[in-house]
């Protein structure tokens, strides 16, 4: 069943409701909020790279609250084990049986704080769940809840004693964005409301988790013209052929882009994807997937510049069929 433009209008309304609701908790962060919601409906995971105290946890909580879902937080440390995430089977003396104690991963919205502090083994355990949507403990496979979204954060400042995520794992995050510090005026507003310890307590659920999962399914059928698909493919190709790049956007990256673009377009009430959507999303969806050639990186090249170049070199499609 294709996604009609009437549905798109409806979806856009719901989307704005969600976003507005969330922005009660995060003042003046509309763009990251919309990106986070897009990630949610596209069925992906979000990587936040930010300094401490910029509202990463607030975002995760607000998101969880808004879709009336559960929220859990894993603070990663170097001594953390995979079972600390997935949960463990423990022997219950009363029941005389092994009982599964689910880890924090069994929640709709999981905040994986400072993911780069954990050992690669633990990181991998998390990333497996992200990829498969299921957890296997002692031979028993359990599905995680739906919708399921991991918001991982990385501290971009402290690099000592960390295990930066390898490229292959970065690729599993659908988007990367950052919240950043608020403006001066907004800061004052934030401070004025500082009496409430957790503003996300003020939020109410706008959507149920079941509805969110359903909407995510229908919105994934938003129409994308072949011309736009061609545009995405050409852009991906352009990042791969760039001189400063050693690893360009993967096929998974291009697929992710189309998924995001479907949601992004629908969120603006459009029953079809425009090249504009692709352009807007190119940074958040692709920037973390591009690996810059070390020599070029040394001389100051970065992924953002690669994407800008690709966007300016690839002409937007103009002809239909």
């Amino acid at each position: 069943m294709p996604f009609s433009s009437a549905e798109a209008t409806l979806f856009a309304g719901r989307f704005s409701e969600l976003a507005n609701n969330m922005s009660i908790a995060l003042l003046d962060k509309m763009h990251p909020i919309r990106l986070a919601l897009t990630t949610l409906f596209a069925g992906g995971h979000l990587l936040l790279e930010d300094a401490p105290g910029t509202g990463k946890t607030a975002l995760a909580r607000a998101l969880a609250k808004t879709i009336a879902g559960t929220h859990s937080r894993i603070q990663f440390t170097p001594d953390m084990l995979p079972s600390d995430i997935t949960g463990v089977n423990m022997y219950d003396q009363k029941q005389r049986d092994w009982v599964f104690h689910p880890g924090p991963i069994f929640a709709e919205i999981v905040l994986a704080d400072e993911i780069n502090r954990a050992s690669p083994k633990t990181q991998s355990a998390l990333l497996e769940v992200m990829g498969e949507g299921q957890v296997t403990v002692d031979g028993v496979t359990r599905r995680v809840r739906q919708p399921f979204m991991v918001i991982a954060t990385q501290n971009s400042i402290e690099q000592a004693g960390t295990y930066p995520l390898p490229e292959a794992q970065l690729d599993r995050f659908l988007m990367k964005t950052s919240l950043g510090y608020p403006d001066y005026e907004v800061m004052i507003d934030v401070l004025a409301g500082a009496a409430a310890p957790d503003r996300s307590e003020l939020l109410h659920g706008v959507m149920t988790t079941a509805e969110a999962a359903g909407v995510a399914r229908t919105v994934g059928m938003n129409y994308v013209d072949r011309a736009v698909l061609g545009y995405v493919a050409a852009l991906a190709e352009a990042t791969r052929t760039d001189d400063t790049v050693s690893l360009g956007v993967s096929t998974r990256g291009a697929i992710g882009m189309v998924r995001c673009a479907r949601v992004w377009a629908a969120a603006q009430g459009r029953g079809f994807v425009l090249p504009d959507d692709v352009k807007e999303l190119a940074g958040p969806v692709w920037e973390h997937r591009i690996v810059i050639d070390p020599d070029a990186a040394f001389s100051g090249a970065d992924a953002a510049a690669v994407i800008t170049r690709a966007l300016s070199n690839v002409p937007t499609p103009v002809l239909k069929r």
């Binding site: 009430g269 029953g271 994807v273 002809l319």
Partner: peptide, 24 residues
């Protein structure tokens, strides 16, 4: 156009976009 107030040029671009990229 769809609740938004747009100048003629932009509206025209919208129509062209619909023609080019939508299944309508």
């Amino acid at each position: 156009v769809s609740g938004e107030e747009l100048p003629t040029v932009v509206a025209l671009a919208r129509i062209a976009d619909i023609a080019a990229y939508s299944d309508q």
